[in-house]
Design a protein around this nucleic acid. Structure first.
Length: 612
DNA sequence: CTAGGGTTAG
């Protein structure tokens, strides 16, 4: 190799560290002119440089023109695709590597294929790669094993991950972290802790893997506990990820006070304008029902990406502020940020919760035509939800037949609840049969089915649904609500009150009931399915968990402040009416976050405009 | 010249 070549390699190394897309172009042209592009290390350098700037099309252009492609450049190309937004494209490429260039996968390529399976959450593909790996000459490679551990972890098979983990000869931070993350994100708290405890040297990565994994699996309680432990152990917080995970935990458990404290911590640590924490804070405030603070947090994020904008759009949408959501979207486009598929889910959601049918159809069309996004099943479900909830039932039924996906339980469920809302018994039976044949997993689907058949008088199917629930061990999730007052948080289950407050809560609710009846309130006792007399049904409604929480808030909260309640299920019709009236009788703003959205009750009306 | 872990939104 000549001194010139050597000089060029040095040049490329520095170019790879700090270059711009146009510098890569120049390099490419220069090499081409010198006739050096065909030397494998050079072509790989240029290809990698294109990939670094996400210029995969140009990378392919170069790749396709090479007369000889060695395993290394194949590996680079496959790896670039597995990291891209379209990891699926690895597969056809992998095939042509074997078939056209007659190259068998080595350990580098295997690691990439395993990583691709992980990104696609395809345990099937992952197992194929695993099997190939075991019979290959590379079956002892720890790096590939580590990728397999990560793959099984991401596919929710931590047990399989563990088997591979135990065969790794030299465990390092990477393999430990992959295993811990696998257990934590699959909800295996004690296993995660066990492996975490066995790890010799823990760093911020390890803590982050554990804490964010727990948040992902919905265990925000343990996530927050560990965040506190981590602080106690004096682990330096010079890393934004773990903090954003902690904020995410506060957001999930609707712990506004804790979220505010974490916000203070971000200010103290100087992360005020950090994007990933800022995005998490916007989400936290929105989910903790404080949309005003969410907007302020959003303003503070100086460099905004798609996630920042989408989080804010969704926040407005969940709070019923459709126009705000649309105007944010316009600003986002003007700011030059390209919306993605999640952005359109948020926009369709906004339309759906405000009954804006034409607006929703327009967004759906522009998503395809102007933004080149292929609608997913979720987009179709959103559109179907919008159409059907607004009463366009037959159009919705047409859509479900003509769309290019097999409808899942969420799709049929959306249509069924709309049929119920609009009292279309005939259609509801048709839809219910489709839903039933899918053997849904969500307990609320069975409640919906049972109600549908009961309304239609189809008692045989009511029994059928109940039997299916027993056979499949599906239990109705009990409704509960919680409220945060200062530093204490109180949870209520329907019909149960804390001993010391029982008399006060019940008498307040009775007092309110008398006042409401004077104002024309008639309890909707037909939603109570049990065999009870009218008075008993009324009593049962009165003791719904959200009402108990609101009553507690009225008794114990700071007068004049908003009462914020979170409920795990959807607010029932009767409670919705009642909370509107209470907001006017007590002159208090009441904000309820239920399973799907927010309701801001004030002066006798709700932000959802009774459309939910 | 190529591969593996923690990253906010639905």
């Amino acid at each position: 190799m000549s001194a010139d070549h050597h000089r060029l390699i040095v040049l490329f190394r520095s170019a790879r560290r700090c270059s711009t897309p146009s510098a890569v172009h120049q390099l490419h042209a220069h090499l081409s002119k010198l006739g050096l592009l065909l030397w494998p290390p050079f072509s790989t350098f240029v290809l990698e440089a294109y990939c670094k700037f996400n210029l995969l099309r140009l990378a392919h252009h170069l790749f396709d023109e090479l007369p000889h492609r060695d395993p290394v450049i194949w590996s680079s190309l496959l790896s670039a695709h597995s990291h891209s937004d379209h990891p699926r494209r690895v597969l056809p490429l992998f095939r042509s590597m074997i078939l056209q260039d007659a190259i068998l996968p080595d350990n580098f390529v295997l690691a990439t294929v395993v990583k691709t399976s992980a990104r696609l959450c395809s345990i099937r593909l992952g197992k194929q790669a695993h099997a190939y790996f075991l019979t290959s000459p590379y079956s002892g490679d720890d790096v590939v094993k580590c990728a397999i551990v990560d793959m099984y972890s991401k596919c929710r098979a931590p047990g399989d991950a563990r088997k591979v983990f135990d065969t790794i000869t030299h465990r390092n931070r990477v393999s430990w972290t992959a295993m811990i993350s696998g257990y934590a994100s699959s909800g295996c708290y004690s296993d995660a802790i066990e492996v975490f405890g066995a790890m010799p040297e823990k760093d911020v990565f390890t803590w982050t893997a554990l804490i964010s994994g727990l948040v992902q699996s919905g265990d925000s309680f343990h996530a927050l506990k560990l965040f506190v432990d981590m602080r106690r152990e004096g682990v330096s917080l010079d890393d934004a990820f773990v903090l954003s995970s902690a904020v995410g935990a506060a957001s999930d458990s609707a712990a506004l006070e804790l979220g505010r404290q974490l916000h203070c911590l971000t200010l103290v640590l100087g992360y005020e304008s950090c994007m990933i924490i800022g995005n998490a804070l916007v989400d936290m405030y929105a989910k903790c029902s404080d949309i005003y603070s969410a907007r302020i947090a959003f303003e503070r994020v100086t460099v905004r990406d798609v996630v920042s904008w989408t989080t804010m759009v969704l926040g407005e949408a969940q709070h019923g502020k459709a126009e705000m959501a649309f105007s944010l979207f316009d600003q986002m486009v003007i700011a030059g940020v390209r919306p993605n598929e999640v952005t359109f889910v948020a926009l369709l959601y906004a339309c759906s919760h405000a009954g804006l049918v034409q607006r929703g159809r327009n967004f759906f069309d522009s998503m395809v035509r102007e933004h080149g996004i292929t609608p997913s099943l979720q987009h179709y479900t959103c559109l179907l939800d919008l159409l059907s909830r607004s009463g366009h039932l037959s159009e919705a039924e047409e859509l479900i037949k003509s769309m290019p996906y097999e409808p899942d339980e969420a799709t049929w469920g959306a249509l069924l609840s709309a049929c119920k809302k609009h009292g279309n018994v005939q259609m509801s039976l048709r839809v219910a049969n489709h839903l039933l044949s899918l053997k849904p997993k969500d307990p609320s689907m069975y409640i919906l089915l049972s109600n549908t058949y009961a309304v239609a008088g189809d008692w045989a199917n009511v029994t059928n649904v109940r039997r299916l629930m027993v056979d499949n061990e599906i239990k109705k999730e009990p409704g509960y609500s919680w409220i945060e007052l200062g530093k204490e948080s109180c949870m209520f289950v329907a019909g149960e009150t804390p001993h010391e407050m029982r008399i006060q809560i019940v008498s307040l609710l009775e007092e309110l009931m008398i006042e409401m009846k004077k104002r024309g309130y008639v309890p909707e006792t037909n939603s109570v399915m049990h065999d009870l007399d009218e008075h008993e049904k009324e009593q049962q409604l009165m003791m719904h968990s959200e009402r108990l929480a609101v009553a507690f808030g009225l008794l114990r909260g700071v007068p004049g402040t908003a009462i914020r309640v979170v409920k795990n299920l959807r607010v029932c019709d009767d409670c919705h009416t009642v909370l509107k009236m209470i907001s006017s009788i007590a002159s208090r703003e009441i904000v309820v976050r239920d399973a799907t959205r927010f309701h801001h009750f004030s002066y006798g009306s709700c932000s959802c405009g009774d459309f939910w």
